[in-house]
Design a binder for these strands. Structure first.
Length: 694
DNA sequence: GGTTCGGTAAACAGAC
DNA sequence: AGTCTGTTTACCGAAC
């Protein structure tokens, strides 16, 4: 039989074999499956086999889902992907789907996702079974298979198997519920599925929804998935008016709509979404995140753009379609023919909406969990982090406002645009590196130990960017920043209006910026003093009122070992950099983009500045410089350009010593002009590549 | 296994 | 005398 052979084929795949043990172990079917299915050579399909097969297909679908997520990162419609409530870790999404084990799949995909995929694949599996049955029937007609009486009994047995399968399915869900993998409250999808899983009409139902166009059953199916019957705890941004306008309820007396009326109501229903999308700037996952409902709206634009969210790799991405289309024109034709605005498409649309809604709910739950975790990790609980909101411009506004208050006047404020490289699902300390979290495990016990951060400090983590993005986090969380004392001191000094700070001011900066440095003061203050004295890059300048510390940028750059030159090496190292998974994707993308823009942009760097750059040996071959340059646009911290860094130090009072004249920093005095810069120049400098930081 | 680097501790001196 | 500031040395551990 086809199903049996398909099952065998899947089973021989090692990765899928893991999937069997993983998923079936939760449904107590794993142990019994071995003997049962292997012994089934007479063509009958055991319920366990069916369940097994659907699990296999769910895994396959999940892999495809991940692959789509991964490919979406580079797709032209990546904006939509960013808005998607479902975010797959980049490191995982980059993996080949075949390499993802079911355990990883369960980690990546939320239980509702897995559940939805499972159900989706169940539908496909039922299609196959139905198809198999049809083939059997055909074979019977040509005399190749059992007698008609056997066929009748076979159909009966099939229905029994469906019942058993349903029971197994429910048992599987119950098991998942017991393990907390799925919400106890049955979702609309589950309810509708259970309603629809009546064996008598199951076959017909899925045939209607997934295959043969019809009006009535698809409407019933859609009704079963009506969002108005959904769980009350839904946090979806689904437009309420949409469900109110959904005209797909059956008539109370059981009468059915005529197809014509249905179609009219369908148009009304669809148009309610378009109104909601166009009339509200609020970003809903249905207006931007999901291509389903916007496909009608954006179809024209997408066609002209040469891409379509429902078309990729020569296939139609309509759920359950996978029709091969050679080119866009053929796809458009296929789309208009096979996925026109009809009952079936609408029902499928609803199913997809349900999936999206489930994902949204899961996102909200995960965000809530993250917030609780961060609260537990000494984050300020009252801090209104927009965790539960989709990442949009509105959410970044408050952040910018808050950060703008944290920086003194006279310093270039971060741009207020949303050009910041926002990592997917950036929540809270987006660029908190693993080292910092690891360090926090130290700090949690209030142990002060040496922390190695050579990689993160020198090559990967841009201090200005991280501090800019997570300044609130470091201010409130007792987390040691993943930077060296030297880099922190330098940053503090360079952040100062006059590029100079007294020791006490440096202390204050540390305590102001980092909750971590509000304790063990003797230790880290000693370290600060030690670093100031030890490193040549910190220059002590005598003042009338005392002494201030400045940064000799040349000396600072000398400290850096000339490693990892060249952009490809940079990318490679960043990709392979451990503990910076959250950085890689956004950095790579922004890196490539900024590099291209640098190559194509007119020379903003004036010759003296360029000369100073060369003199500083911090040109384009500097890894962290390039990284920082990427983040300069979105930094809320004063991201300093080389010019700014190499500004001659203006001591408040004339130094009593002239020894500084021999300092390399004095050499730069001839090429750069004195402070302060006009604001427009500062703005211009922010456009310059900032050869920055750690 | 040696080197480098960063963190920590501590001793010491000078200024206030 | 006590504190702050600054310098120096030593040691350790991690990364290279």
């Amino acid at each position: 039989m086809m199903v049996e052979s398909a099952s065998e084929t899947i089973r021989t795949t090692p990765s899928n074999q893991n999937g069997v043990s993983s998923l079936s172990s939760q449904s107590d079917g794993g142990g019994g499956r071995e003997g049962g299915s292997n012994g089934d050579t007479n063509g009958e399909i055991s319920p366990v086999d069916l369940l097994h097969l659907q699990q296999q297909q769910a895994l396959q679908a999940a892999r495809q889902f991940l692959l789509q997520q991964a490919s979406g990162l580079n797709s032209p419609s990546s904006n939509e992907v960013k808005q998607s409530p479902v975010q797959v870790p980049v490191s995982m999404a980059m993996m080949s789907p075949q390499m993802i084990t079911p355990q990883q799949m369960q980690q990546i995909l939320s239980p509702p996702q897995l559940q939805a995929l499972l159900q989706q694949q169940q539908a496909l599996m039922l299609q196959q079974v139905t198809h198999t049955l049809t083939l059997t029937h055909t074979h019977t007609q040509v005399g190749l298979s059992p007698r008609p009486q056997q066929l009748g009994s076979k159909q009966l047995a099939f229905q029994q198997q469906l019942i058993q399968m349903q029971q197994l399915q429910q048992q599987h869900i119950l098991n998942l519920q017991r393990q907390g993998l799925v919400p106890l409250q049955p979702t609309a999808t589950m309810q509708s599925l259970q309603q629809a899983m009546c064996p008598s009409d199951l076959q017909q139902l899925w045939k209607e929804v997934s295959g043969v166009p019809s009006s009535e059953e698809a409407l019933k199916q859609a009704e079963g998935l009506d969002l108005s019957t959904n769980s009350s705890n839904s946090t979806s941004a689904f437009p309420k008016a949409a469900s109110a306008h959904i005209p797909l309820h059956s008539l109370p007396n059981g009468q059915s709509h005529t197809p014509k009326r249905d179609r009219a109501r369908l148009f009304e229903w669809i148009s309610s979404f378009t109104k909601a999308d166009s009339g509200d700037d609020h970003v809903t996952p249905y207006s931007k995140g999901s291509p389903v409902l916007s496909s009608h709206n954006t179809q024209v634009h997408e066609e002209h753009a040469g891409s379509h969210p429902l078309y990729g790799h020569g296939e139609c991405k309509w759920p359950g379609c996978e029709a091969l289309c050679e080119d866009m024109g053929q796809f458009i034709k296929h789309l208009n023919n096979d996925h026109a605005l009809d009952d079936r498409s609408t029902a499928q649309c609803r199913v997809q909406m349900q999936v999206v809604q489930q994902l949204e709910i899961q996102l909200a739950k995960e965000s809530e969990r993250l917030q609780a975790m961060m609260t537990h990790l000494h984050m300020r609980p009252s801090e209104p982090k927009p965790f539960n909101q989709p990442l949009n411009l509105a959410s970044s506004g408050s952040l910018l406002k808050r950060e703008s208050e944290a920086y003194p006047e006279g310093l270039p404020h971060p741009p207020t645009s949303a050009a910041a490289p926002i990592t997917p699902l950036r929540q809270g300390p987006s660029v908190i590196s693993s080292s910092s979290l690891h360090t926090h495990s130290h700090s949690h016990t209030h142990a002060v130990g040496p922390i190695r951060r050579r990689n993160s400090d020198k090559f990967c983590t841009p201090i200005a960017s991280e501090l800019a993005q997570n300044c609130e986090f470091y201010k409130n969380a007792d987390v040691r920043p993943p930077f060296t004392y030297a880099s922190l001191i330098r940053h503090a000094i360079l952040e100062a209006p006059d590029r100079q700070l007294t020791l006490n001011e440096i202390y204050n900066w540390f305590t102001r910026m980092f909750a971590y440095f509000r304790r063990n003061t003797a230790t880290w203050k000693n370290a600060v003093r030690h670093n100031l004295s030890l490193h040549k890059c910190f220059v002590r300048v005598e003042n009338v009122k005392g002494a201030v510390w400045t940064v000799d940028e040349v000396e600072y750059q000398k400290r850096r070992p000339p490693k990892m030159t060249g952009y490809p090496t940079l990318v490679k190292n960043m990709i392979s950099g451990l503990g910076f998974g959250s950085l890689n994707a956004s950095y790579q993308a922004a890196l490539a983009e900024s590099s291209l823009s640098l190559l194509n942009s007119p020379p903003l760097v004036t010759p003296p500045s360029a000369a100073s750059l060369n003199m500083l040996h911090v040109g384009h071959d500097d890894v962290s410089s390039t990284v920082e340059q990427v983040n300069s646009n979105g930094s809320c911290s004063p991201t300093l350009s080389p010019q700014q860094y190499s500004h001659p130090v203006h001591v408040k009072e004339e130094p009593t010593e002239v020894e500084e004249d021999s300092r390399p920093v004095s050499l730069l005095a001839g090429v750069t002009h004195s402070l302060p810069l006009p604001s427009d120049e500062r703005d211009l400098e922010e456009e310059l590549p900032t050869e920055e930081l750690e």
